[in-house]
Amino acid sequence: QCDEGETVIKFSHVTNTDKHPKGIAATLLAERVNTEMNGKACMEVFPNSTLYDDNKVLEAMLQGDVQLAAPSLSKFEKFTKQFRIFDLPFMFKDINAVEAFQASDAGQAMLDSMQRRGLQGLAYWHNGMKQMSANKPLLLPTDAQGLKFRVQSSDVLAAQMEALGGTPQAMAFSEVYGALQQGVVDGQENTWSNIYGKKFFEVQDGITETNHGIIDYLLVTSVDWLDSLDPAVRDQFLTIVAEVTEARNKESTAVNAAAKQSVIDAGGVVRTLTPEQRAAWVKAMKPVWDKFADDVGADNIAAAQSANQMTN
């Protein structure tokens, strides 16, 4: 439905358009671009992995076949290992600390860190903090021993589960519900909105509020495409991106709180940790940092720590 002469912006993502935080943001971005930039640019959104999945979309972007995508941050570890910082357990104490780090010089520099590889980060989009669930109560790290956990494909996350004495299993996201229900795997980690959206709470003993990690997305485009834009068009586009990002990120805390409440309302069991229990989880998982500290860089870790303190 794009008109002749408009710059076509294809945005391929993997969630729905109206419930998932990323999908909502993408829809909002498209609406604003299509009204405010009418005649200059036109955005087509391809949701639900119909065009590309997260593994393929970045390849397609470098090829020039798609212009926007928002994969989760761990997908960028292939481009620069700095992004492993977002997968390290207990690196950020809450979503405000994540936000502060992303806004810091270190966080902003990471947006530009993949230019050499042809990608330009535009904005961080929040999903939220990760929680853990299994088919038995998880209160201490020893509870996770011997369990099989589905993880996203990432060395850091695999190492994290091994640090708990669990077995990491790779598995397509669409198979996770069935695998949890049938017991092919015992547990998983995810944000409240994913746990509610994919109904994982129905097939788990309960969800433990660990807040041990984060799932955020990077809105990304290709350097070559961005450079090819007329400067006025580019500025207007980037302004809209910034405004949509701010508006949606502000909502993310509320979205996750609502998802958590919905889990409880639907009969899901939510367990919170005492400070001592939480300390035990930190103690069990933090050794993972050593293994990846060099990849992430000391300055980035320092910036993350100061973000944790700033947001006290």
């Binding site: 076509v8 999945d53 593994n55 393929k56 020039g64 076949d65 397509a172």
Partner: peptide
């Protein structure tokens, strides 16, 4: 469309890589 022939090759391979089922 304005997509490339390379995107066809990519799709051909992702019949395997992208569809574990």
């Amino acid at each position: 469309s304005d997509s490339s022939l390379a995107s066809i090759a990519q799709t051909l391979f992702s019949a395997f890589e992208g569809h574990y089922t």
